[in-house]
């Protein structure tokens, strides 16, 4: 943890100042471009995320929003541009990538819990093997976060025995056990039955209240309205519009954004 704090300093000096919050930015994305073969998925994305900021990314499917946040912890490699996370620039160096992944938690659409391990073991794995936390301490942290997502009683079950909503809450706890500085959510409620969405959103709202830096790809506009500091609308691999949720929902500037909002808010 100390290493990353020291890592912040040189970067903040070196980067050109373009936004007010540049020196506070925990994630800096400059001119990010990515191709899948010949297909240009991400086109010159720029984004600065302040520490503690909560950003919701929305847009039609195929707009590149998932690919975008997956670039931030290098699950997808980008071909042009710069991503700097917590003072460390992402490149092909495995050490760098792993250092960033330690500080960035991720929650997936399909939970991706490890089915051969119990819920608690899922939470212990990374702290013990990556952070080298002593097992007892890791258990304590693990139970703490399982309590925060309100399923300490399921700790010794296997993921296959839990409901979708419970599994996703375990996935959130698993990511939090690494005590990350940033949390990425990739459509965390899209694979859930309607009655389970709320229990997951409740946990996420609570997490937002605790000051965690969050980037969340979601179609839950209610969640965006209540917790987001900024809403980003993506289409065709570009950031079309960025605004505070108040402005975004009541007064969208771009016709494409209006069209999208009409589509999803109609019913």
């Amino acid at each position: 943890m100390q290493q990353t704090e020291t890592g912040l300093e040189p970067e903040s000096v070196a980067s050109p100042v373009e936004s007010v919050a540049r020196d506070e930015a925990i994630i800096q994305v400059d001119d990010l471009n990515k191709w899948f073969g010949d297909f240009h998925v991400l086109k010159s994305l720029n984004l600065d995320v302040r520490k503690g900021e909560r950003i919701v990314i929305c847009g039609p499917s195929g707009s590149g929003k998932s690919t975008f946040i997956r670039c931030i912890n290098h699950l997808e490699a980008h071909q042009r541009g710069r991503i700097t996370v917590d003072g460390v620039e992402l490149n092909e160096d495995v050490k760098n990538i792993e250092a960033i992944r330690r500080e960035v938690g991720m929650v997936f659409q399909h939970f991706n819990l490890f089915p051969h391990l119990s819920v608690l073991e899922n939470c212990l794995l990374a702290p013990i093997w990556v952070r080298k936390t002593p097992r007892n301490e890791a258990i304590e942290t693990g139970m703490h976060y399982l309590e925060r997502v309100r399923i300490p009683d399921q700790a010794h079950k296997y993921p296959g025995q839990l409901s979708g909503g419970q599994q996703q809450r375990v996935a959130i706890a698993r990511a939090l056990c690494m005590q990350p500085k940033i949390m990425l959510f990739d459509e965390p409620t899209s694979a859930l039955d309607p009655e389970m969405i709320k229990e997951v959103l409740d946990v996420m709202v609570e997490l937002a209240g605790s000051g965690m830096t969050m980037l969340c790809v979601t179609h839950e506009m209610g969640f965006a309205k209540t917790v987001a500091d900024r809403v980003i609308f993506m289409d065709g691999g570009e950031i079309v519009e960025t605004a505070a949720p108040g402005d975004f929902f009541t007064n969208p500037q771009q016709p494409r954004t209006r069209e999208f909002l009409e589509q999803i808010l109609q019913h």
Partner: peptide, 11 residues
């Protein structure tokens, strides 16, 4: 997803 989840944890 299993590979990705393991990677995302920094393993």
């Amino acid at each position: 997803g299993q590979y990705e989840a393991a990677e995302a944890l920094g393993l």
